[in-house]
């Protein structure tokens, strides 16, 4: 196990360096800024005394979290990075350099995955924190302090969702030659549709478990929960962690056993 730590760290840092300076990160940062911009807009509307505001900061924050962050940003960021982890090395034909070093292939997968989780967190979590502060900061700090628990929960949920989606999209990237279309169908098709179906099928989505522990009652999760019970919080968390572990293990196994023929 100790043998794995160093190569995982090296691969992680190598990947982080590549991801950090990529156009992808710039693009995601821009999208994150738009989300912060929405929080600013919400705050402005809340501040104008001449507008009869029909909502509260927590409602705006809840909507932002449920729709823009969890349903879009997290999926989008992990899809972006996850599918690129192996595919980009294959397209750039640089994977040979990694595969001809005395490092087990699962270590390469794990190192890259950790880099994905790290950089995704660096982009998404500050977006949540800044949005929260923008919406709540004011002379009256009681509300700010009261909802800190919700904020912590949100950060935790987002982190868990990134773990699972990141592992799943890494799996797709290691497995398929063209992972994007399948990833998009999964992210915006399967996850979007199946989680609203009654019965057991909705338990086959990440969205269901995320909605089960979400502190926000947005429209989408309200509809989903109307047709089926929430899974208990602890069970949801454990399921999400197990899902992430399963997807990551599968991705590592595929990387180890698959023969990658580089295009000339």
């Amino acid at each position: 196990m100790r043998n794995l730590v160093k190569p995982v760290k090296t691969i992680g840092l190598l990947t982080l360096d590549t991801l950090f300076w990529s156009k992808k990160t710039l693009f995601i940062a821009a999208v994150s800024l738009v989300i912060v911009g929405l929080a600013v807009l919400g705050r402005l509307i809340l501040s104008f005394s001449w507008i009869r505001v029909p909502f509260t900061p927590e409602q705006v924050f809840g909507t932002l979290m449920a729709t823009a962050v969890i349903h879009f940003l997290v999926t989008f960021v992990t899809l972006f990075y996850g599918t690129a982890l192996i595919s980009e090395e294959l397209e750039g034909r640089t994977i040979t350099y990694l595969f001809t070093r005395p490092v087990p292939k699962p270590a390469i997968m794990i190192g890259k995955y950790l880099a994905l989780v790290w950089i995704s967190s660096m982009l998404v979590i500050p977006t949540i924190l800044v949005s929260y502060l923008v919406l709540y900061l004011g002379p009256d700090t009681t509300r700010l302090m009261r909802d800190v628990g919700t904020l912590g929960k949100d950060v935790g949920i987002v982190f868990l969702a990134m773990l699972v989606y990141g592992a799943f999209f890494s799996l797709l990237g290691a497995w398929l030659k063209h992972p994007i279309l399948v990833g998009l169908i999964y992210a915006f098709g399967w996850e979007g549709i199946i989680s609203y179906l009654p019965g057991f099928t909705r338990k086959l989505t990440v969205t269901h478990y995320v909605q089960s522990i979400s502190p926000h009652a947005d429209t989408a999760s309200a509809i989903a929960m109307m047709i089926g019970e929430r899974t208990p919080a602890l069970e949801s968390v454990i399921t999400l962690v197990l899902m992430a572990a399963f997807f990551l293990a599968s991705a590592s196994l595929i990387l180890r056993e698959k023969e990658y023929v580089l295009e000339q």
Binding site: K23, F27, V31, F76, A84, L184, F188
Partner: peptide, 17 residues
């Protein structure tokens, strides 16, 4: 891949916006 994901992002994000 970058182009494909960005297209999806433009489409879905504008809807979410």
């Amino acid at each position: 891949r970058f182009a494909g994901i960005n297209f999806a992002a433009v489409f879905f994000f504008s809807q979410i916006l």
